[in-house]
Design a protein around this nucleic acid. Structure first.
Lengths: 222, 222
DNA sequence: AATCAATGTTAAGGGAATGTTAAATCCTTA
DNA sequence: TAAGGATTTAACATTCCCTTAACATTGATT
């Protein structure tokens, strides 16, 4: 389930939102100021970050601007909590990289429907078969990958191998798992075959995406 | 059924329109100001947005301009509610990206017929069958294609194959998908048949439109 | 540090998938 | 039913991906 980070200096609001979101099954993370929020965001890479606009120290706009500078945090959605009659556009919320805003006082039902809408939008963008992983996008429908805005055509096995590894970033796939998924259970090929394909992929997108765990398998990181 | 978002600061008008549209089976969404309207629009991606021109805070024109900047919201129709004697063109409604305007006071019958007309126009424009893909146009009604201003008559299978591939440029269609769509699920033909048709099409419009993804299928690009 | 198994790297051969052409069959229309 | 194009099949050519093999390097274990 989606990870949501909430940043607000008022403990009551944090708790109110936490309660309502956890009830719906979201994984909730909390921070009580901008700096803390940035640190937590780097740690958990949430799907959605809810920022209070008015906070002591670093305010929401500033925090948002900072967040968007961090490579891992260009995909997450960012929503602001604002007072009802603030002119959000004027304040520069969208320029700072925000996706939406939610008016205070918070009504749980409104909050939830808003968040569901946001996340649906986000995942419908990515579940079409387009996976965005930092500077690397994998489009299963078009059978291409895009690396730093450059389209690359991978042959079938290479594409499927990369698609498998990247489907669960961080997870180590054993050689057997890879063989079963990419080649199919009954096919018998020498195990060096996998290495060669990994080599080919690394040649095209760089070494750092696929990491070798000696004796165990391979994992994708970005 | 079509989704319609109504943005107006007067609750009475919202209710009036909602009542009439829901009666006709439309899915109706409401917002009471420009910012809220933008947020809702992003959430539901309506087919038609009805904006009141005069609203406190962000007015209709401004909201419309903002809406059209959002990638997901370039297709929806936008109609304005205006006072009877305002010169809509002068105000800049069309420049802001509006498709139509409706005069107040609202007469339900007029409103409904106007909306039906708009939606019919929208859907007939996109389903009309003329696909323009760079130098290649595909006219499903006339069953012809136009390549660099030259009309070409393709035999049925060739036409349908090209129409299928070009319906989602970039997407790779597997041989099975192609067989199911162009030939029909129960027909059994040798798989080389597809290649031959691809060859014929390439002969007529050039090689670069249809790309082979070995072991996967074919895709259309332009 | 030495060893050895696991993985990196490269190049080449084989083979399956597709390209290509022509002929055979099917279908429509006059 | 004959003619003509449309569709499919068949047969051969070609391409490009996959695999293998052979050697190099790494890194864990002793």
């Amino acid at each position: 389930m989606a990870k949501i980070l909430i940043v607000d200096d008022e403990p009551d609001i944090l708790e109110l939102i936490r309660y309502n979101l956890e009830k719906e099954g979201y994984k909730v993370f909390l921070a009580s100021n901008g700096l803390d929020g940035i640190a937590k965001a780097k740690e958990v890479i949430p799907d959605l970050i809810i920022l209070d606009l008015m906070m002591p120290g670093m305010d929401g706009i500033e925090a948002c601007t900072e967040l968007r500078k961090i490579p891992d945090l260009q995909n997450p959605l960012i929503a602001f909590l604002t007072a009802r009659n603030e002119d959000f556009a004027q304040i520069g919320g969208f320029e700072a990289g925000a996706d939406d805003f939610i008016n205070k006082p918070i009504k749980p039902k409104v909050l939830l429907s808003r968040i569901k809408g946001l996340l649906r939008r986000k995942f419908s963008e990515t579940e079409n078969g387009l996976l965005v992983l930092g500077e690397l996008s994998i489009d299963k429908e078009k059978y291409i990958i895009i690396h730093r805005n450059v389209e690359i055509n991978l042959p079938r096995k290479e594409f499927e191998l990369l698609a498998l590894l990247s489907s669960k970033p961080g997870k180590v796939f054993s050689r057997d798992e890879i063989l079963n998924n990419v080649w199919g259970g009954d096919v018998v090929v020498g195990d060096r075959t996998i290495d060669v394909h990994v080599r080919k992929i690394r040649e095209k997108i760089g070494d750092h995406y696929i990491k070798t765990i000696k004796g165990v398998g391979y994992k994708f990181e970005f």
